[in-house]
């Protein structure tokens, strides 16, 4: 697990910096998508999460879900063009899961990319992640992440 000012970045995930989401290769051609620790920190405590339905086709950069906190409302943008195979009902019923467990219980959708090789080129993984996020956090003036007790990563 990589860490930058207490913001966590699991090593096995791909990161879309422009959309501030992660993508986990499920090994069957599909990817789970969720908000990064930085994204949930920037958003603050989430009160609503409205998911696009399973079966819907989405384009890269378009909305997979709309999330709302006390200070922000906005889309969770897809890092891939493809089809939504599955959604996480717990993310919709308990939006704070996206804060408490952004990389595990708080996943948002599972998507099957249709142009994987092309879209994967814009994602980062491994050592590159920290370099990119260091610049991103400086730009967004995010000093770091502070977690509630019980945070699961």
């Amino acid at each position: 697990m990589a860490e930058l000012n207490n913001c966590l970045f699991p090593d096995d995930l791909y990161y879309s910096l422009e959309n501030n989401v992660w993508a986990q290769d499920m090994g069957d051609g599909s990817f789970r998508i969720g908000l990064t620790d930085v994204a949930q920190t920037l958003a603050g405590s989430l009160i609503h999460c409205k998911l696009q339905p399973a079966g819907k086709a989405v384009k890269k950069g378009k909305s997979l879900a709309t999330v709302e906190s006390g200070k922000w409302v906005g889309p969770v943008k897809s890092p891939f063009t493809g089809d939504i195979l599955e959604t996480n009902p717990a993310a919709e019923s308990t939006p704070t899961l996206l804060n408490k467990s952004p990389y595990k219980q708080g996943w948002i959708v599972r998507i099957k990319p249709s142009s994987l090789d092309e879209d994967k080129g814009s994602l980062v993984k491994g050592a590159e992640v920290l370099t990119h996020y260091k610049a991103y956090m400086a730009d967004k003036q995010v000093s770091g992440c502070i977690h509630c007790e019980g945070f699961e990563g």
């Binding site: 770091g144 502070i146 977690h147 007790e149």
Partner: peptide, 20 residues
Amino acid sequence: SLETKPGLDEAFAQGIKTIP
């Protein structure tokens, strides 16, 4: 309260990583 920017700044200045 870390809900506010001054509160967050103070927490970072004190090296807080977990609340409470």
